[in-house]
Structures are given as C-alpha cells and as structure tokens.
Nucleic acid binder design. Structure first.
Length: 709
DNA sequence: CTTGAGTTGGTTTTT
DNA sequence: CCAACTCAAG
C-alpha cells in the first residue's frame, strides 16, 4: 500500500536509495516509507548496472518477500533478485551445499511440536526426570544456544555446573535424534548455514560472487546467527544495507539481539546512516500517543516521529466491564464505522495473546460481520493436516521417525504399541531406521503372523505412494488421502470428521496453487516452503474482512482503523515476561504496544476490561501502566467513548497511603511481602509486591487491602 | 489392539 | 480451561 503523499522521495529517502556502495544503515521509524525505499533501492541498483541476479534482499516473513517481489516488479526491476527470509535462504544454501554441511538435501524441517517431541525423547533417553528438567525449558535453552551459535559439543566442553552438564547431555542427545531422523529444526537452519559459510571459504566465495549486494529488512529483530550469516555473506565487499527501527524490536525472547542494529556503526566504521523520521501513515494525535509511550523507554536512541498528515480521526481509550463487553463495544464501534462507509478490510483488532481471538470471533459472528483471524500456522497444526503432511514427509525423508510414528497407525490399521516396540527393538539391534525395519518385518521373529501381514500391507501402500510422487503435489496428496484410509475414517466420524475432511480439501487446493505457481513443483520443495509459513502469511488484505491478530503478527502492516484490546497489567505487559523484575522485558512489552499503536492510520481505539475471565474465573484487572504513559487522560469508569484530550492537568494526589520500595507489607490473602515498585498516579496508583509465596503481584491501591507492617 | 473415562499439568509472543 | 497422558475394560 503506497501512501498518496509519497509522490516522490524525500531527501532522506533519496539518499537511502542512491547511496550504492558500502555499508548503509537506514533507521526508519514507523510509517516512514521504508518498504518503498527498499524497492526503489533495488531498482536503483539495477539501474546502475548491477545484475538482479547479484542482489539478495532478506525480509522478515515470506509474505513480505512476496510483496517486495511484486513491488520490485512494478518498478520494472523484475526477476532475478533473490528475495526471501533468512530461513528460506538458509534452506536453499543447505540444500545446495548439503554435502559440505554433512547433510542430506531431503532433510525434514522440524517445527515447534516436532521439536517438543524430540526434546522430550532426549530427556527420557538421558534418564533425567521430566519434572526436574521440563522439556519446554530445555528446548528454550537449546534454542538460545543455537541462536548464539554454540553447538552441542562446544557447550558440553564448557559446561561446569550441574545444570549446564545436564543440559549439555540433553542437547547432544537431541541433536543426535534430529540427525538420526534427518531433520533440522528452525534454529539448525540458521546455525548450520552460519557454520557452513564461515567454515568453508570456497562456499563463502561462491556466495559472495552470487550476492554482491545484501539488503536486510527488520534488522532490529535479527538474532546472532543471522547477524553472523549476514556478516559472512558481505565480508568480501561490505555492500550491506540494513533497515530497521530499534523501537520496533519485539523478538528479544526469540533471540533477537537489538545490539545488532545499535552497533551497526561500530561494525562498519565507514557506514552511512540515514534516518527516516517523517511519518506518512498516521495522524498527528496518533503519533503523539506513540511518542509519549515510547519515550518511557530508557534504553533507546532518540528518534523523532514527524507527522506529515493533517490532524483528524480519533484516539480513544475505553474501559469495559469485562471481555464480553469489550468485544461487544468494539464490534459496535466497527458497525458505526461501517455506517460511515468504512470498508471492513480497513479495520483490525490486535491483542496480546491468541486465546483472546475467541471472544471477538463470537461477537463478530453474532453481528454477521465477516472477519479473518490472521493465524496461518494454526491451520498446519490441525491433526488431520499434520497427519496427511506426515505421509508426504515420509515420501521425501523415510528416516523421519516422528512422521512415521504419527501415521503408522493413523487411521487405525491394527499396528499398535506392542508391534511398533518390537520393530523398534529390531531396528536398534540391527542399527537400521524404523522404516527400514518395517520392510524387513517378515524376518522379525517376535512379530505375530497377523502383525507381519499388517505391516507388509503398510509398506506396500507406501510403495504405491512413491510411484505416484512424480512432481505435482496436489494429485499426490489426493491419492494419499484416499488410499491411506484417512478420508474414509474422517467420513465415518460425523460432523467433526466432515470439518476435518474439508480442511484437507483446502490443503489440497492450496497445494494445487503451489503446483500452478511453481516452475518445477516438487514435494520436497513444497514441504520445505510450508514449514516456513508464518502467521502473517495468512493475512489476505483483499478479502474485505476485519482482521484479528496478535500484536506480533501486526508488525509491518497498517490499517485505517485499529483496535487494541486487553491493555491490562498481566496481559500487556504480559505476566510471563517477568517485566516487574527485568526492565528490558518491560521495555519490550512497551515496544509491542508501540508497534500496535503505530499501525493505525486514522482511528485508534485502545481498551481494557475491568474484569477478565482467566481459566474459568472472573478476576478484577488493573489497567496497564502503559495506558498512563500515552499522555492523555481517560475515564476509567464510564465505558463511554472518551476522546483522548491532551490535557496536561496534574493528576490528583493519592488520597492517603504511599509505599516505599523495599517496605514490608501484608495482604489479606497473599500474606507478607515486600514492595518492589510503587507507581504514584493519583487514584490509580499501583503497588507491586513480591510476596513470600514467591509470586509477584501488581495491585491497585484503591481495590486492595494492603497494610504496612 | 482400541477406546473412552479419568487424571494431570501447563497455561505468550513465532521463524 | 484444555490438551496430553494413563489405565482398565472390551
């Protein structure tokens, strides 16, 4: 979506486009026309004689890559330039140089759930207790290590305390499991590619000759592995152009290192820095709110938000009784916008956690307003979809045991746990894969006559699939769905099965799209593409529906009308972020709201509920501290639209108690604790207490019975 | 071997 | 609250 006022480039944008040779950092605020600058830059590079083939642009999502390809095409810079995400680029590199990376090119890509399974297995294999070493935690730790390019061997060699040694053992086992399955997880894609490029000079040379100009978008959200890949790729020529905004860094928890962008100048001493501070997206009052909010972050480089649009539109902060009232109120506002002639595609609702989508869906269904929940990966997490994909994965990579175990008895075909265990025992005794053992079932003495026959039938079925695997994916998927018995078993399962069956049909038509769009469709390519699918990839701006999505998914998008719901303590900032003790995490949550706010072009509605149902029970909430940082007063009780006025009236002094940090206090139900923080904002003052029970709570002074001890 | 009832435990954001 | 797991009956 190009902004109308951007008829031509501003001087800064012009500079960012024309500075061709050497390192360039474009620090681009929200709505500054950054995407436009990047595409113009690609065109300018080609104009100046660079072959498209020698350009590599890296985006944050596949969707963004697709859009950039389209826009570059519109500028006449069509074809040839490599535009993709870091992960997709790594897949291509690893497949191409598989032998140099000690890999086989038909590797499976393991997602979150596959990873969880493997880690769990690894913890068990190492004979550790899964309650002392929760797989989720271990996976997190392993992921962090991989993002920092610390492989299992070197981590083990440096491990000196008990926890590290345990983790090292699990990490090693986990990597072994993956390699036995010929699988790579998301982090492996980056880590193995980084090690390959850094460790094999001839590969590096080849890639440097191929990619003579590297452009990286959303640089503030790159992790260390990506940073090292980028650095290695441009080490020969230094032609790197990074764009990003430190204030929009929201993936720290995933290993994103904001220092990559902050330290760009010291990494590249001759770097040219261009700041894009003009905002062509939002009205001045929206920008005032955004600026007021983000200025509460201490660790940041000062950047201005310069409005270019005329004043207009609303910034509204609203309080609602509970989450149902909030959803109903937002839907009511959407209806009012509709009456004003707004089109549904110009409306979006953002929230912090996916589980919040439900209440909005229900309200929208009730009022018959069409909507889309932007959650692409959810589709691929459905049981029936994972089932059929597991069949397909097996065809590409028969060593993928996770996939095999998933489908060997799905639908049920009489190959149960006992049979699988016996085949598994045979497989490990003979050091062959499970699938190889299946083919030799006839020779496994422990198997009953019936079991042997059933296994043989399964193997036979796979041969049939393999013969049908000749290129296009959709016809193959259809054969698999049918012959595997999956289709029949869903058909027999009533209404739910009908839904599931429809989902598979949807997958098959998506595969048909792939077949049509791909020059040379292949199963391996298709599977690797969909593994790297993201939530935002599912967003279709052409449907004319209200978009519901998380604040994270909203990154990079813009809407005329934005609603941000559930801005409450515990939700935003989210309680699991440890924001009370860790200032960095609090700042990241603040950036997340900043991203949400700056998506809005004309109307911005922020809301919270005074009660929210959490795990079945309705709990009183506390308005988010961020609400008080937006620089406008709001009425907490009314629930009536309250236009944000920018009064600088001092808030009334707290009537009564003040708490000091470190003070000992007692709460009616939580008991003794110590004050961690006290925010004195009049009647809405909050006090944060770390209780002796171990939990830290943020309490609103006027609702709580907190006494000094 | 399958199925269903009952139990347990975990509960953010995502390439 | 929900998903994943366990266990006993068929």
């Amino acid at each position: 979506m190009e902004n109308a006022p951007l008829q031509q480039l501003t001087p800064s944008q012009e500079e960012a486009v024309r500075h061709i040779e050497g390192p360039l950092l474009v620090v681009a605020g929200p709505g500054s026309g950054k995407t436009r600058v990047i595409t113009h830059r690609i065109a300018a590079l080609i104009d100046s004689g660079v072959r498209p083939y020698n350009i590599c642009a890296i985006t944050f999502t596949n969707k963004a890559a697709e859009e950039m390809r389209q826009r570059a095409c519109d500028l006449g810079a069509s074809g040839g330039a490599h535009i993709s995400t870091f992960h997709s680029l790594c897949v291509r590199i690893l497949r191409r140089y598989a032998d140099r990376a000690a890999l086989r090119p038909n590797f499976s890509i393991y997602d979150q759930k596959d990873q969880a399974r493997c880690v769990k297995q690894a913890v068990k294999d190492c004979r550790f207790d899964t309650s002392n070493f929760p797989p989720a935690r271990m996976l997190d730790a392993i992921s962090t290590l991989k993002n920092r390019l610390i492989d299992a061997e070197s981590f083990r060699n440096d491990a000196d305390d008990f926890f590290s040694k345990t983790l090292a053992e699990i990490y090693l086992r986990y990597q072994n499991l993956l390699s036995e399955n010929n699988g790579l997880d998301f982090d492996d894609l980056l880590m193995k590619a980084a090690f390959l490029i850094e460790g094999a000079p001839e590969v590096n040379t080849e890639l440097a000759n191929r990619f003579k100009f590297l452009l990286i978008d959303e640089y503030q959200d790159t992790n260390h592995a990506q940073y090292r890949i980028a650095k290695a790729l441009v080490s020969r020529h230094g032609n790197i152009c990074a764009t990003g905004d430190p204030d929009q860094s929201i993936y720290r928890w995933r290993g994103a290192d904001i220092n990559n962008i902050l330290a760009f100048e010291s990494d590249w001493p001759d770097a040219r820095i261009v700041k894009l501070e003009e905002n062509f997206r939002s009205t001045p009052n929206i920008l005032a709110v955004a600026d007021s909010l983000i200025s509460h972050n201490q660790k940041r480089k000062l950047k201005r938000l310069v409005p270019t649009r005329e004043q207009g539109g609303d910034v509204v902060i609203r309080a609602f009784e509970d989450e149902n009232a909030e959803a109903a109120g937002i839907v009511r506002s959407i209806e009012m916008l509709l009456e004003q002639g707004v089109s549904l595609g110009d409306v979006a609702v953002f929230y912090r956690v996916n589980s919040m989508s439900r209440v909005f869906e229900e309200a929208l269904i009730r009022t018959k307003i069409p909507y889309q929940v932007v959650r692409g990966v959810e589709f691929y997490n459905r049981k029936e979809i994972r089932d059929i994909l597991a069949y397909l994965k097996m065809l590409v990579n028969p060593e993928d045991e996770i996939a095999l175990l998933r489908i060997i008895n799905t639908p049920t075909r009489g190959i149960g746990k006992t049979t699988i265990d016996r085949i598994g025992a045979y497989a490990s005794a003979n050091r062959i894969s499970l699938f190889a053992a299946l083919k030799k079932a006839e020779q496994i003495d422990s198997l009953s006559r019936g079991a042997k026959a059933k296994v043989a039938a399964f193997v036979e079925m796979f041969k049939r699939f393999a013969n049908a695997n000749v290129g296009p994916v959709a016809p193959l998927a259809e054969v698999v769905f049918d012959v595997s018995g999956l289709s029949a078993s869903l058909l027999a399962a009533g209404a739910e099965g009908k839904d599931a069956s429809d989902n598979v049909s949807e997958l098959i038509s998506a595969a048909a799209d792939y077949d049509r769009q791909s020059e040379e469709p292949s199963l391996i390519d298709y599977l690797q593409q969909i593994s790297l699918f993201s939530d935002t990839d599912a967003y279709d701006p052409t449907t004319g529906r209200v978009a519901l999505m998380t604040l994270h998914a909203a990154k990079g998008l813009e809407f005329e009308n934005v609603f941000i719901a559930g801005v409450e303590e515990g939700l935003l900032p989210h309680e699991r972020t440890n924001s009370y003790e860790n200032a960095d995490e609090l700042e990241e949550e603040r950036r997340l709201l900043f991203v949400g706010v700056t998506r809005a072009k004309t109307n911005l509605h922020i809301s919270y509920a005074q009660y929210r149902t959490i795990r079945g029970q309705s709990l009183r909430t506390i308005p988010s501290q961020f609400l008080f940082e937006l620089g406008c007063n709001f009425d907490q009780q009314s629930g009536i639209d309250e236009d944000c006025d920018f009064d600088d009236e001092p808030v009334s002094e707290a009537a009564g108690v003040r708490f000091e940090k470190g003070e000992l206090v007692r709460h009616q139900s939580f008991g003794l604790g110590r004050v961690v923080d006290f925010v004195n904002i009049g009647e809405n003052s909050t006090v944060t207490v770390k209780f002796n029970t171990g939990q830290t709570k943020s309490l609103m002074l006027k609702y709580t019975d907190l006494v000094k001890v």
